[in-house]
Design a protein around this nucleic acid. Structure first.
Length: 210
DNA sequence: ATACCGATTAACT
DNA sequence: GTTAATCGGTATA
């Protein structure tokens, strides 16, 4: 769960879609090649902080910095299932936006929660922007088979790194942006099982007829 | 100083 | 499928 308290409004949502960005080796990451600038400085901090940056001059994206100090890795939060403060989210997103779309997509997520560059570097353990683990009573535990891996969005310039399946989303969840295409998506549990067994008799394809 | 471009979105054809 | 919006970061001069 991601919680925000901005402008007197409390909002929160369950994280349903993320992407991993893996430090210097990953050409899709802002820290590719060890690049270190005022914008991405927080990526080099210890995990647990927010990395917020502006993109296309219009939108903001929020990441969870992970890893040890000087290991610039982060997880982009791409979509939430709105849980708390839906009225505030609707007010920020404008009329006519379906509830499932309030925080669907990284730019929409930050707008719904009122996140901007003033929260860059925020400590996600406490403060106005917080990460929590919801109780099992509120949300049933997520089964590995319901976590789908797929290529990351919007990084076609990154060569071989563009095809790494480092996007993770909840299968068939209505709040996931750019729903992974059947055949390209693979459940995490299937990855695990195939990686330690012989190749499949049948190549991966559309898992169910349409 | 100037030019290019992006971890996007909404509105188009 | 395509494109405009819009500006800080980054590279180049």
């Amino acid at each position: 769960m991601l919680h925000s308290e901005v402008d007197g409004q409390t909002t929160a949502g369950r994280i349903v879609e993320v992407e991993a960005y893996r430090g210097p080796i990953d050409l899709a990451a802002h820290s590719a090649g060890g690049r270190r600038t005022p914008r991405n400085e927080i990526m080099y901090a210890r995990g647990g902080h927010a990395y917020v940056y502006q993109i296309y001059g219009l939108h903001h994206c929020v990441n969870v910095v992970v890893g040890e100090i000087d290991v610039p890795e982060a997880v982009l939060l791409r979509a939430l299932e709105p849980v708390v403060g839906l009225e505030a989210m609707r007010a920020r997103r404008g009329a006519g936006v379906p509830d499932a779309a309030l925080a669907r997509g990284p730019g929409n997520l930050t707008r719904a929660l009122g996140i901007d560059r003033s929260l860059d570097g925020a400590d996600l353990r406490r403060g106005v922007l917080r990460l929590t683990i919801p109780t099992a009573a509120r949300f049933p535990a997520i089964r590995p088979r319901d976590v789908v891996r797929s290529p990351r969005i919007g990084i076609d310039y990154a060569g071989e790194w563009a095809s790494k399946p480092w996007r993770f989303s909840l299968r068939d969840h209505p709040c996931v942006s750019h729903p992974p295409r059947r055949g390209r998506e693979r459940a995490a549990s299937a990855i695990r099982s195939t990686s330690r067994s012989a190749p499949r008799a049948r190549p991966p394809g559309r898992s169910s007829p349409r």
